[in-house]
Simulated scan of single mutants.
Amino acid sequence: MSKIVVIGAGGQLGQCLRTVAERRGISEIVFPIEQEANILNEELLNTLLEKEKPQFVINCAAYTAVDKAEDEVDLSKAVNETGAAHLARACKANGVALVHVSTDFVFEGNEVKLLKEDDVANPINVYGVTKLDGEKAVTDILEAYFILRTSWLYSEYANNFVKTMLKLGAERDELGVIADQVGTPTYAIDLANAIFDIIESESKIYGIYHYSNEGVTSWFDFAKAIFDISKTSVKVNPIPGSAYPTKARRPAFSVMDKSKIKSTFNIEIPYWRDSLVDCIKQLNK
C-alpha cells in the first residue's frame, strides 16, 4: 500500500479517513496537525512532503462555510484556491499524486438532469467559485490528480446537517425544512472508503470524478428520514427556499452522475438511506 499524507486531518472527512484507515488496517498514513500542514504555507507543505515521502496526499482542507464565504471572500479564496495551488505545487515538486476533494456546488443546478464530470461548471455562490478555481489550480499544475466532487457530506464527526437535525428534533416539536433543493446526501465514511479504493487500485486514470451516495432526495425528505430512523417525534413541514433566505444561493438540483467512478474503479456505492442508518447507529453508540 502507498504511503499517504492527509491534509486537513482535523475536519469531518479527515476524521472519517482516520476511522476507515483503522478499520482497513492501513498503517502507512500520516495525519499531521495543522501547524505542520497549513495549506496557506507552501514552504511548510514542501517540508512535510520531503520528510514523509508519501506517494499520495489527500486534501480535505477547505473553507466550507457556504453563507459566511459571501462575506469572507478573501479567506475562502485563500483556502480553496490558493491553498490548493500551494499543495499541487508541493505535490509536483515531490512527485506525489493528489486526491483533492471538491463539491457539487461548482454547478449552477438549474435543470433537472444528472450532472456529468464534463458538464459546464457555473457556480452561483462564492464557495462554489473558489472551489472551482481550486480545481483549475490543481489541473493546471499537476498531471497526477484525482479530483472528487461530492455533495451534502455528513458523518458522526464535526458539524453537519444530520447532527443539527437530531439536536433540533430533540429541542422542538415542529420544524420547517427546505423541500425545493434536491441532491444526494453523502456519508463521509463511504467517501473515505472510495478514496482508499482509488489509491489501492494503483490506477493512473487521473481526472475529475463524481462521488456521492446513490439516490436522490430533498433536504425535507432527508430530515424526515433522519427523524424516522432515529425515532425522533417531531413534525417536519416542507418550505420553499424562498421562505428561508440565505446569504448564498444554492443549486436547486445537483444530483451527480457517478457512472465514471463506478466503471473506472469498480466501486460499489451505497444507497443514501442505508448509509444514514449506519451513521445514526454510530451516533447512538
Rank of each mutant, 00 (worst) to 15 (best):
S201D: 11
Y157M: 09
K235D: 15
A85G: 14
M256V: 08
Y271L: 10
H210Q: 11
T150N: 09
P270F: 05
S275A: 15
Q55D: 15
A121C: 14
S76F: 00
I124L: 10
A90Y: 10
A84T: 01
I29H: 01
R18A: 14
D74E: 13
I33S: 13
W272P: 00
G83W: 01
K116D: 08
P240S: 11
F146H: 00
Y127P: 01
P245A: 09
S233H: 12
F56R: 01
F196Q: 01
K224D: 10
S233G: 02
A88H: 01
A84S: 15
D67S: 06
E50P: 06
K116P: 02
N125C: 11
H100R: 00
A9N: 10
G176Y: 04
L13Y: 04
F105N: 00
E70Y: 07
L115D: 06
L276F: 10
T19H: 13
Y157K: 12
V120G: 10
I208A: 00
V182E: 07
C279L: 11
I141Q: 03
L148R: 07
I280A: 07
W152H: 09
I261H: 05
A179M: 07
E108W: 04
S102Y: 05
T264G: 04
S203I: 05
A78H: 06
R172S: 14
A158E: 15
V66Q: 00
I39A: 09
S263D: 10
T139V: 15
A121L: 03
Y187K: 04
L115I: 15
C91P: 05
L17A: 05
K51N: 10
I261R: 05
G215F: 03
E111H: 09
Q282H: 12
G83A: 10
E28G: 12
A62T: 12
E117C: 08
A88V: 08
K262P: 03
S230Q: 00
N237A: 11
V277G: 02
Y63L: 01
T217C: 14
N122M: 10
T164W: 14
A121P: 05
E50N: 11
R172A: 13
E214Q: 13
N94S: 05
A97L: 03
T186Q: 04
N59C: 11
G207P: 02
F105C: 07
D140Q: 13
G10V: 05
E174D: 12
I7D: 07
E52V: 15
I189G: 00
I178L: 02
I147Q: 06
Y206S: 03
Q15W: 08
L168F: 15
R89V: 08
K51W: 04
G8T: 03
L48M: 02
V30G: 07
K235Y: 14
R149C: 00
K92A: 12
K231Y: 12
V96N: 03
I189F: 11
A188N: 00
A243E: 14
F265Y: 15
D104G: 01
R273W: 01
Y271P: 00
L98F: 11
H86K: 02
A97Y: 07
G95S: 13
K131E: 05
A137G: 08
G95R: 06
N110K: 12
K231E: 14
L191S: 00
E81W: 05
R18T: 09
K231V: 09
L166I: 09
G25E: 02
E52D: 15
N160F: 07
N110S: 14
M1C: 13
T150V: 12
D274T: 06
E70Q: 10
D278W: 02
I29E: 02
K247F: 11
R89T: 09
I199A: 05
